[in-house]
Amino acid sequence: MARVVARDSRAFTELFDEHAPVVLGMLVKMLRRRETAEEVLQETFLQAWNHAGKFDARRASPRGWLILMARSRAIDRLRSSRARADREERKAREDKAVMAEREPGADVSLLARERDLRLAKALDTLPDEQRTCIRLAFLDGLTHTELAERLDQPLGTVKSRISLGMKKLRLVLQ
């Protein structure tokens, strides 16, 4: 990263080639459309180039920093998308149905079709309410407030579920 900060384009190329596939994989999952995901990927790496001096190794690895920036941009896209309202409404119905009639391993079967077994299995180790919160936050980019509205739960409950769920995921994924 020090070389990127020093405006070394070769270091930037290495950064892109090493991390772009993982970042894009996440963005495609969040945004559903590859074209939009690639736009956000490009914006993210340009932001990394232009603001490389803001990278703080005490708080994140280079990949973690890139993922955070990419997620922030993707969430902005999702919020500004007009189609978002329809999607949320549809998802709300699906989520309520899932919460009401949940069968063990449902997330695994849902995501297995998309070949994301590892994340699905990790999520499946969480209690239902934590898994739903994490999945909606991580994949759909719903904020605390949106989660509380979507799930019809108090804000404090949502914060707590995410906090507990992330602590468990840390153990599972490490």
Partner: peptide, 28 residues
């Protein structure tokens, strides 16, 4: 830092998608 590592691991658990040559070239 630890939580960022967890989010990173979650993202890394999703199937990677290689950027198209055009996007890579345009970015670089």
């Amino acid at each position: 830092l630890a939580l960022s590592g967890t989010v990173e691991a979650m993202a890394g658990s999703i199937e990677p998608v290689a950027p198209s040559d055009m996007v890579r070239a345009r970015t670089l």
